[in-house]
């Protein structure tokens, strides 16, 4: 048989529908990521359930008031919201991306014409949607069971929104960045879990922040979680509580600055260190 007698590949214009635009591709990717997340029972239980379980435990332990008319639940809800947002972004990505990299899922995407950013956009959409759902669930449980007071003014809701968005963005980028540290599928959670746990302890998630040793408060102030908690305290606690913060106020300007800085650091790390394949894959 000769090698040049076969017909050339058919070039027909009237084929299946044209490829969706880039924006539509990102939405499809986001929908796929959400579907995968929701079908993975472990993800749903541990990522979405964790903050709710924690608030149930905390409300049972600290049933009294931190100040007249302000329950401990009102204080701890801020830490639980921040933790929940960090879990769904930083931990979720830091654990799952190494698994997908190890399985060759990322390598397979790289072999398609999909623009690289679409894959990242899919992860971000998943984090945002799951983060909102989980926060709403947490607030609903707290309002129903522990008489949580929701923010009363538009300004406070706006603060709630920008602190959450900046915080989730920083944690998402850091989660993607830290995923490249794990060499195998299994080591993702070994890398991420201790980091998350230590941050939760020193950032005032489980304790009243100002009751922590000063040096610990200073270490925590380097990382985003402390500032997410502080920003959320300004939303859920009376304005008078600002005076109890280490800086004498809620320091919303500093919150914005530190979280933005972490977004930049995370983005730079992502762009410089992200790997689509495992080390042994070259």
């Amino acid at each position: 048989m000769t090698t040049t007698t076969k017909p050339a590949a058919p070039v027909t214009a009237a084929t299946a529908a044209r490829r969706p635009g880039s924006g539509a591709l990102a939405l499809r990717q986001g929908r796929l990521e959400i579907t995968q997340f929701l079908r993975s029972r472990e993800s749903v239980v541990f990522t979405m359930g964790f903050p709710i379980i924690m608030i149930l435990i905390f409300a049972a332990i600290f049933s009294d008031e931190i100040a007249p008319g302000v329950s401990y639940t009102q204080y701890f809800i801020t830490g639980m919201i921040a933790t929940g947002l960090m879990t769904v972004s930083f931990q979720n990505l830091g654990i799952w991306i190494p698994i997908e990299r190890d399985r060759g899922v990322l390598k397979r995407y790289r072999g398609t014409p999909m623009p690289k950013w679409v894959w990242f956009a899919g992860k971000v959409i998943m984090v945002v949607v799951i983060g909102i759902a989980e926060t709403v669930l947490l607030l609903a449980v707290s309002v129903a069971m522990f008489d949580l007071d929701l923010p009363q003014t538009t300004a406070k809701w706006l603060t709630f929104a920008w602190v959450s968005v900046l915080g989730v963005t920083a944690c998402t980028l850091c989660g993607i960045a830290i995923s490249s540290l794990a060499r195998t599928a299994r080591s993702g959670s070994a890398v991420v879990t201790p980091v998350a746990l230590v941050l939760q302890f020193i950032s005032g998630v489980f304790f009243v922040f100002t009751s922590l040793p000063t040096w610990m408060q200073q270490v925590a102030a380097i990382f985003p979680l402390k500032w997410m908690c502080q920003g959320l305290r300004s939303v859920f606690l009376p304005d008078s509580f600002g005076a109890r913060e280490p800086g004498g106020s809620f320091e919303l300007g500093t919150v914005a600055l530190v979280l933005s800085a972490w977004c930049v650091i995370g983005l730079v790390l992502c762009l410089t260190t992200f790997r689509w394949t495992t080390k042994r894959d070259g």
């Binding site: 084929t15 299946a16 529908a17 044209r18 490829r19 969706p20 591709l25 499809r28 796929l32 579907t35 995968q36 079908r39 993975s40 997908e100 399985r103 060759g104 899922v105 990322l106 390598k107 397979r108 398609t112 014409p113 999909m114």
Partner: peptide
């Protein structure tokens, strides 16, 4: 090596990838 999508069905995966190609 195969990159698996454990949580998805065969048809979902193939349909998703078809979206990446202009002449799918």
């Amino acid at each position: 090596g195969t990159g698996e999508f454990d949580e998805l069905t065969v048809s979902e995966v193939v349909r998703h990838f078809s979206g990446f190609y202009p002449e799918a």
